[in-house]
Design a protein around this nucleic acid. Structure first.
Length: 280
DNA sequence: AAGGCGCCCAACCGCCGCGTG
DNA sequence: ACACGCGGCGGTTGGGCGCCT
């Protein structure tokens, strides 16, 4: 009946990941691709549950992740998307290449919420705070004046549904895209083996740094990448084209895999305890 | 110098939808 | 049809860090 449990929580490690664990996970994913997270910890030699591995990879180790604060453009996009999609962080993240739902959620809670409140906008409804406060008080006033039965108050939403909040309920992302074609951003691709090829090959590396100016200090950071030899890696579902570096450059995809994005790997690779990148 | 405080963010928790046996 | 696991999601937590007094 059913399947085996994903992990017997006994003896599994929790808390912050060590560099050694990161190396093991990266090495495993690069060798075997993303498949069956349940099996990953066992096969990779990690005392973690599959869920933890998946989270670590998607939120931190994936090389196509952007680092640093969200740009003004990204921030505005998040605000706009949030006004229409609500707290559906993964949907919002899917419109911002290189950003994770966790990152956006954190940024929203720590920065944008405050910013909007300062601007007098309610971060929940995206309406002016004065109007929201008014609407909040209205049902209570009615209750005090015995104009509204308690049951009705409980059932009544504090804020009347608006056009925006109706859109918020849209189940289908396609619907959103139909209304907002400007957000027509391709799904964030996973790493393309050709991209690794770029970093592995010295000549391609130099041609790349001369043809793209996205990374100001790539020459410094690239040294550790020059000898990278990535093992066979199945990116099956996510790398349809095989046109190599030219295609990547032509399609301006390099911003996704800017060498700066490998900062976390850089740390790992500079760890004296590590051997070669290929096998860690 | 050190203690208090608030901020930030990586990681965990619990729930849900879907697929599988 | 049902039970259960997997993967994904959103909410929450807590440790690390910097700033202030």
């Amino acid at each position: 009946m059913g399947r085996q449990p994903c992990c017997d929580k006994v003896g599994l490690k929790k808390g912050p990941w060590t560099a050694e664990e990161d190396r093991k996970l990266i090495n495993f994913i690069l060798t075997n691709g993303q498949c069956c997270w349940r099996a990953v910890p066992k096969l990779a030699g990690l005392l973690r549950c599959g869920k933890s591995c998946r989270l670590r990879w998607t939120n931190y180790l994936r090389p196509d992740l952007k680092r640093g604060l969200l740009s003004d453009y990204e921030e505005n996009m998040v605000i706009d998307l949030h006004s229409q999609l609500g707290n559906r962080w993964s949907k919002i993240a899917s419109h911002l290449p290189g950003r994770t739902d966790n990152e956006i959620k954190n940024h929203w809670n720590t920065h944008i919420k405050k910013k909007l409140r300062k601007m007098g906008i309610d971060p929940l409804t995206h309406k002016p705070l004065s109007i929201v406060e008014q609407e909040d008080e209205e049902p209570l006033k009615k209750l005090e004046n015995h104009q509204m039965p308690l049951q009705e108050l409980i059932e009544k939403p504090l804020v009347e549904p608006t056009k925006e909040s109706n859109i918020k309920n849209m189940e289908d992302d396609d619907q959103f895209m139909a209304i907002n074609p400007e957000y027509s951003v391709e799904e964030v691709p996973l790493i393309d083996p050709e991209c690794f090829g770029i970093f592995c090959n010295n000549s391609e590396m130099s041609s790349l740094s001369s043809s793209t100016a996205t990374s100001s200090n790539s020459s410094n950071d690239s040294s550790f990448l020059k000898d990278l030899q990535f093992p066979d890696f199945d990116w099956s579902d996510n790398c349809g084209n095989n046109n190599g570096v030219d295609n990547i450059i032509e399609n301006n995809m390099m911003s996704l895999w800017d060498i700066d994005d490998f900062s976390s790997w850089d740390l790992l690779l500079n760890d004296e305890s590590s051997s070669t990148f290929g096998l860690f």
